[in-house]
Structure formats: structure tokens, C-alpha cells
Simulated scan of single mutants.
Amino acid sequence: MKKIFLDKGHGGTDPGAQGNGLVEKDINYLIGEHTKWYLNKYYSGFQLMESRPGNETVFLQERTDMANAWGADVFLSIHVNSGGGTGFESFIYNGTVTNEDIALQNIAHAEILSTMNNYGFIRDRGKKVANFHVLRESRMPAVLTENLFIDDVNDAAKLKDKDGFLQDVGHAHARALAQFLGLPDAKYDIVIGYFPGSQIDKSFDQAQAAFPNWSMSVKKR
């Protein structure tokens, strides 16, 4: 069972970057929620821990302490950039790293950038290294993503698309994690029962039309 530590950057009293009517902590949260949903929907064989389930204030040391104590297999930190640029970039630690760190960054960078480009050209700012706390102090492969610039008007327009762009970017983070960890696809059991004359809510329209007295539902294993 693989352990995923999902770090939604900032939160609580720490808003992160702000611009164009957006607050970074809120965007990080939404991307993280979409990441979590996609993992739970399409993959199995993992456990997930979050640095902040909601809008809690969680200090950097607390985030890495949680991941390290839990024995996470991967650490993913989600952020949005600022400072006058545009585009997407990813980071791993600028000190000693493993081949797994490099592989994680390569997979995440390619998957996320490819997904973003479905919404128009996104500048690839590159795969970078930095002395960020969450990368330095985590004792497992770790990557930090910077998902566009909150203070750029064009980037911000995409970041405001909660049900399109942010959802797909979150899903891309999930696919990257699944690929890196080799997670198996989720398996579902079809539960069928016979209830003569019943009026049970139908989940499978075509099957139910052919067999109106059968009740069918899906349960994840």
C-alpha cells in the first residue's frame, strides 16, 4: 500500500500570493481536492494524507514532520506562482536528490504541462531546483509545482476556471502520482439483486430497461 502525502500550499492565516481577485491558498486547495478525487475514483493500492483538509494554518515544519512520521512514499506540494512571470514550473531540492526525485519531477512536469496546454499555449519555465523547506526536509521523493502566475492577467483567467482548468490540472497531478507509484486501476464490483415488482432507483439505464426487476449498483473494492 503506497502512501501519498498531499500538501496544499499555504492556508489559514497564510494566504500565499494574491492577485487579480484570487488568493493562492484557495487555488491550491481546489487543485488538491481535484487531485484527491481523481485518485480515489480511478486508482487503488494507496493511502492519502493531507497537510490541511480545509483552511487550517499549518507551518512548514509541521507538514514535513507529518509526512516523515507517517512514512510517506511521495510528497507533492501544490502552489501558484507570482512575481511578474507566466507559465508552469516544477521544483525538486537543490541538494542531494535521488533518481526517484528526478523521475517524479519528470513525470509530474510532463503530465501537468501537457494538460495545461489543452487550454492554450502555456510557457514551460522548466524543471528547476530550489532550497524549499518541504523539499529539503522531506525524507521521500518530493516535488513542488507552481501552477501559473496569479498576478498575470492571462494566467489568472485560467486559474478562475474552477470546473475546467483547475479540475483538469488536479487530475493531471493525480495521474502523475499514479504513474510514479505504479498504482493499479480501481476495481469495482457490480452488485446485482432481484426484487420482483420493486421500484428501485436504476443505475444502469440500458440494463434496467432490459431487466426491469433487477437492481444494480457499483461498489469500489
Rank of each mutant, 00 (worst) to 15 (best):
G84T: 02
T35C: 15
L183C: 08
A17Q: 12
E33R: 14
I192G: 00
Q105Y: 02
G71S: 10
I4W: 09
G120F: 04
Q179I: 02
Y119S: 08
Q105V: 00
D189T: 14
Q47D: 15
Q208G: 09
F88T: 00
R221D: 02
Y119E: 10
F149T: 03
G9W: 04
H133A: 10
D26P: 12
M216N: 01
V23L: 04
L159S: 06
V191S: 10
M1I: 09
L177A: 05
G120C: 05
E100N: 13
Q18Y: 00
L181M: 15
K219H: 01
Y43Q: 05
L144P: 10
V143Q: 02
K202Y: 03
F180R: 13
H79P: 11
V74S: 07
D124A: 00
D168Q: 14
G87H: 05
F132D: 08
F180T: 09
A172S: 08
L135T: 02
V23C: 02
E100R: 15
W214Y: 15
H109T: 08
K3G: 01
N28P: 09
A142K: 04
Y43G: 04
G170M: 04
R123D: 06
L183M: 05
Q18L: 10
N118A: 04
Y43W: 13
L113H: 11
N154T: 14
W70G: 05
A142F: 00
A108H: 15
I192A: 11
K36S: 12
F91V: 05
T115H: 03
L166A: 01
A174L: 09
D168P: 08
T64Y: 12
L181T: 05
R125H: 03
Q18R: 14
I27N: 07
N81Y: 03
A142L: 01
L113W: 07
D163Q: 12
L113Y: 07
V134D: 06
V129Y: 02
L144Y: 04
G16L: 03
G87T: 02
S203L: 13
A186D: 09
W214C: 08
L181H: 10
A209R: 14
S82Y: 04
A172W: 07
F195Q: 12
S77G: 02
T64A: 01
L135F: 03
T57H: 07
G11F: 00
Y42G: 02
D26H: 13
H171A: 08
A176S: 15
L159R: 11
R139E: 10
A186N: 08
N99E: 14
F121K: 14
L166W: 03
N117M: 13
